[in-house]
């Protein structure tokens, strides 16, 4: 008997993968912050990709982190701001859990921080639909996805 199992295996693999991802991803509302503002576990259930993280940080429609933060290690990036602290050495100063907490919602670590909360979907004052000036209904899509937060965290960890 010669049955081709490849299509069946592909479906099973996809199901398993999909189920695993759905179960492991933590939505913004279910995110648990420790006492010090850190988040212990990966929000996506997967490790971050540092290079994707750097791109997420640079993209103005995503992290736009350089609008406020300087990174001396990447002088090719134009017009880095000086609102927040320079990020060089972030990977030596903070743990992954602490960086995850700061990127997701820095106000748990620094209560009065000006930094936007990148993984938060509700609790806003007059939330708008992006930059259209039109009202939006919560929950909003967070500014970054769970995986994008993990990617940014992994890039920050590489800044020793």
């Amino acid at each position: 008997m010669n049955i081709n199992l490849a299509p069946v295996l592909a479906v099973l693999t996809a199901l398993a993968g999909g189920t695993a991802a759905a179960a492991a991803e933590t939505p913004p509302a279910a995110t648990v912050f420790e006492e010090d503002g850190s988040i212990a576990q990966s929000l996506s259930g997967a490790p971050g990709d540092p290079q994707a993280g750097r791109q997420t940080m640079e993209a103005r429609g995503l992290g736009n982190c350089y609008a406020c933060h300087l990174v001396e290690a990447t002088p090719d990036i134009q017009f880095m701001g000086d609102i927040g602290p320079a990020l060089d050495g972030a990977g030596s100063r903070w743990s992954a859990a602490q960086l995850r907490g700061i990127v997701a919602d820095a106000k748990h670590t620094f209560p009065d921080s000006m930094m936007p909360s990148f993984y938060k979907s509700a609790g806003f004052l007059r939330p708008g639909e992006g930059y259209t000036a039109k009202p939006a209904t919560e929950p909003l899509p967070p500014l970054l996805t769970a995986q994008q937060v993990e990617d940014v965290v992994s890039y920050l960890l590489s800044l020793k």
Binding site: L125, R126, P127, G128, Y131, T132, K134, P135, A136
Partner: peptide, 11 residues
């Protein structure tokens, strides 16, 4: 209006 809009708000 422009400033508040740029906070991703309904001005």
């Amino acid at each position: 209006f422009g400033c508040v809009r740029d906070t991703r708000a309904e001005p």
